[in-house]
Design a binder for these strands. Structure first.
Lengths: 190, 190
DNA sequence: CAGCACTTGTACCTATCGGTACAGTCTGTA
DNA sequence: TACAGACTGTACCGATAGGTACAAGTGCTG
């Protein structure tokens, strides 16, 4: 049997796109085989526990990306306003200006939530926590945490709306407004 | 065969809860039969086109509810601020303070979007449109439409977050902030 | 009470699901 | 070059999916 070029690490991003476009249930092994070019043999060699393990690997990779590209910088030592700007920039790029879905968000709404509840919760708590810290540094005081919740929810909702309306621009518009809402603490009502 | 008590109209709300708790794919006919008490014979008698028709009936009913309880009042003749308050009240009640999912939002993120794209888009455009109108009446001017988008997205995102964190209170907190953000046009930056 | 349209449970269909078994094949190491 | 272990395609498994067919039953109308 000819050996496939891919390693396990190379497969995970492909799996991510498959889960994004087909959902967890919709991503049958046939579909996964087709998109990855790997047969069941290879897939179960890389992911012995099957689809669950594939999804876990995908979520772990996405989470790791957000940790390094978003959460860690949010807690960094740069000026707080720059950290916030950076978060919005990274988020806008990652979600392809609204053309790409957040797997954690999708899993939260679907019944996959039960299966991956810990990972889903961790992803969002980390986001809210790190963002709240940066907001506190810009002087939002007691409003930092609720404002962080509002912003994270706003981003997730913007993804829902952009996809529902099939209008990626609405994602960008909403993100622009969210940027401004964290910019000036004096407009953050108590 | 004993005749079941239910009529088609009585089944739709049950179907809605089944789709909410199991998703569209996850709601197998076995599950539907179990929750509705109706066998395949009855189900296909009421919904000849099967699951697709069931989902359409559910979406239509939810949409109709929002039309009468939310969108129509938003366009009404009451004072604009009262109309906005009413929207938030109805939304908070309908979504059980974050314990209940928005089927349209869930369908938008899942691949059910493709199948029900028209209904999903209509639901959100109606919401944004009617809300933008009310916001214009409270003096938000050119910011009415983008603000309406932000609010609708905020509500949807709040549902995602509440479910992800398994914390319905976060939904209520975010809604409270959104209420305030539409209250005072002077804080709506241009 | 006869007839009829509407309901309903059951049996059955094919397709596909996730997963397993395993015999082959390749490649790094000695 | 020989062996070990990682890799891969294929055949196969039981379970279940959505959907169809239909006979049996029900209650309204005349």
């Amino acid at each position: 049997m000819p050996r496939a070029v891919a390693e396990r690490g190379d497969v995970v991003p492909v799996l991510a796109e498959v889960f994004r476009s087909h959902g967890f249930d919709g991503a049958s092994l046939a579909v996964i085989t087709e998109h990855t070019g790997l047969g069941k043999g290879s897939l179960y060699n890389f992911f012995p526990r099957g689809k669950d393990e594939m999804a876990e690997a995908v979520l772990d990779e996405v989470d790791a990306w957000f940790q390094t590209a978003v959460y860690l910088p949010l807690r960094g030592s740069e000026p707080a306003t720059a950290r916030l700007e950076r978060m919005f920039d990274e988020v806008e790029t990652y979600f392809r200006s609204g053309r790409r879905i957040c797997l954690f968000g999708a899993f939260a709404l679907g019944l996959e939530r039960d299966r991956f509840a810990d990972r889903v919760r961790a992803y969002f708590t980390d986001w809210v926590d790190s963002l709240a810290g940066a907001l506190a540094d810009t002087g939002h005081g007691r409003q930092s945490r609720p404002l962080a919740e509002e912003v994270v929810a706003g981003i997730q909702g913007a993804l829902v709306l952009a996809r529902a309306l099939d209008d990626p621009d609405s994602f960008t518009r909403i993100l622009t407004r969210l940027r401004r809402s964290v910019g000036d603490p004096t407009t953050s009502r108590a």
